[in-house]
């Protein structure tokens, strides 16, 4: 099937207008992208200039969890697309093929029970990559994914940047600030507990999640619930 640029643009316009005002802008864009890519779930990640990744919207829990796994292992298609500026695909649940990249991420994500393709589409403005849209499809990428992805990467970025607050204004959309907020709250708590820099505090959380074989979001939740404290935490070997 030939997918023309104009056809995609029209589809995007219709999808977006139909979703208008129901949810925050990033989530609307995720929902529109899910429709256009015929995907089961999507998540949008933005990145700061000093490399902090932030999942700003996800259509469902599995989409968030697949991002969390990449944050935890520090590898995966999202990271790769942010660097390369081109579409990256991870084929998950295929067993241990030594040729496949991102072994840590693939091993961890196999526990989420998802088998299929995880696509990472760079969100671009001119040549600058602002973030990544992840989409999962059990049936693997569609034949038109390159074309649709490249259109979406540009169109979603343009749409996102129309909003000065990127749809992240907590007053306008109280529910828009995603679960990832908890990771940064927990980071702040660890900063107060041990007096380390936020990036080191986040590494502590990440290390703990890795060691406990759980997710970053889960560890953050436990820190906030005061089930874990790093006050007396020492890393083995220190």
């Amino acid at each position: 099937m030939d997918v023309s640029h104009e056809h995609l643009l029209a589809q995007l316009a219709v999808t977006l207008v139909n979703l208008r005002d129901t949810t925050s802008l990033p989530l609307r864009l995720c929902q529109a992208a899910r429709t256009l890519l015929d995907a089961e779930g999507t998540a949008m990640t933005l990145s700061t200039l000093d490399g902090i990744r932030l999942v700003v919207a996800a259509t469902d829990d599995l989409a968030s969890a697949l991002e969390d796994v990449q944050d935890l292992t520090g590898e995966g298609p999202s990271f790769a697309a942010l660097d390369s500026g081109v579409l990256e695909v991870a084929h998950l649940g295929r067993g241990s093929d030594a040729d496949e990249p991102w072994p840590l991420m693939r091993a961890r994500s196999s526990r989420l029970g998802f088998m299929g393709a995880l696509l990472a589409i760079p969100l671009k403005l001119d040549d600058q990559v602002m973030g990544v849209l992840s989409a999962r499809r059990s049936d693997g990428p569609t034949s038109t994914v390159e074309q649709v992805g490249s259109f979406l990467g540009t169109a979603l970025t343009a749409a996102l940047l129309q909003d000065a607050e990127l749809g992240l204004d907590p007053l306008a959309h109280p529910s828009s600030w995603p679960a990832q907020a908890e990771i940064h709250q927990a980071t702040g708590m660890v900063v107060a507990q041990v007096g380390v820099l936020p990036e080191d505090a986040m590494s502590l959380l990440r290390g703990h999640a890795f060691a406990q074989d759980t997710t970053l979001a889960d560890v953050a939740g436990q820190v906030i619930a005061q089930q874990i404290s790093f006050r007396h935490f020492t890393v083995e070997g220190d």
Partner: peptide, 28 residues
């Protein structure tokens, strides 16, 4: 493009700092 990239960065960084500060105050 540069201005937009900076704006995006500052919105994200602000939001992260606010969440971290909430964590600091909650803990203290």
């Amino acid at each position: 493009t540069e201005a937009l990239a900076e704006r995006l960065d500052s919105v994200l960084s602000d939001r992260i700092a606010i969440e971290q500060a909430k964590g600091v105050l909650a803990e203290r």
